[in-house]
């Protein structure tokens, strides 16, 4: 740091000293650059020259969710409050992480034939790619903007039909 060191390549030297426009000796002393750097970080430290803190204080200030954000899933309901899902298994088929498990049954309603008896998403396996939403022919599953996906147990992270319908 105090004196010229010799490891720099000639190419780098010419380039760098041309850029800096100072004597080679002074440049290779490094100290001017070091102090320039120190001065720069000091400006950040004291927030001079328009520097400001970028941190968003998360729990108090939530960052706005952008359009198209893919958070937790939701099963949609139709006008009568029944699940829209007809258990066609398209989401399970398309799911790249194999996190959806469906067991179908006959629907008890006159206007529908099939519905899911069990609809589970293993949120621990889910990669939130949104393919299920794209594959759904009935617009029955969608990804919400919920991103606070914390649980204290693993079993909590396997969302069943009720949880998904109320999500």
């Amino acid at each position: 740091m105090s004196q010229a060191t010799e490891e720099s390549t000639p190419a780098m030297n010419t380039q760098a000293s041309a850029r800096i426009g100072k004597s080679k000796w002074l440049f290779r002393l490094y100290l001017p650059a070091v102090f320039k750097g120190l001065f720069n970080t000091f400006l950040h430290l004291v927030k001079a020259k328009g520097h400001k803190t970028f941190t968003i204080q998360y729990p108090e200030v939530a960052r706005p969710v952008r359009k198209g954000y893919r958070g937790e899933h939701r099963l949609k309901k139709d006008a009568l409050g029944r699940e829209k899902c007809v258990a066609c298994f398209m989401c399970q088929t398309v799911c790249p992480s194999n996190c959806i498990r469906i067991v179908a049954e006959e629907a008890p309603w006159p206007d529908r034939d099939k519905r899911p008896k069990i609809f589970e998403i293993d949120m621990l396996r889910c990669i939130y790619c949104g393919m299920c939403e794209e594959a759904c022919p009935c617009d029955a599953i969608e990804l919400t903007e919920k991103f606070n996906v914390v649980s204290t147990t693993r079993t909590e992270k396997i969302y069943n039909k009720e949880k998904l319908l109320s999500n």
Partner: peptide, 9 residues
């Protein structure tokens, strides 16, 4: 076999 499984699985 009604609603038991999709054939591709």
């Amino acid at each position: 076999f009604l609603y038991q499984a999709r054939v591709w699985f």
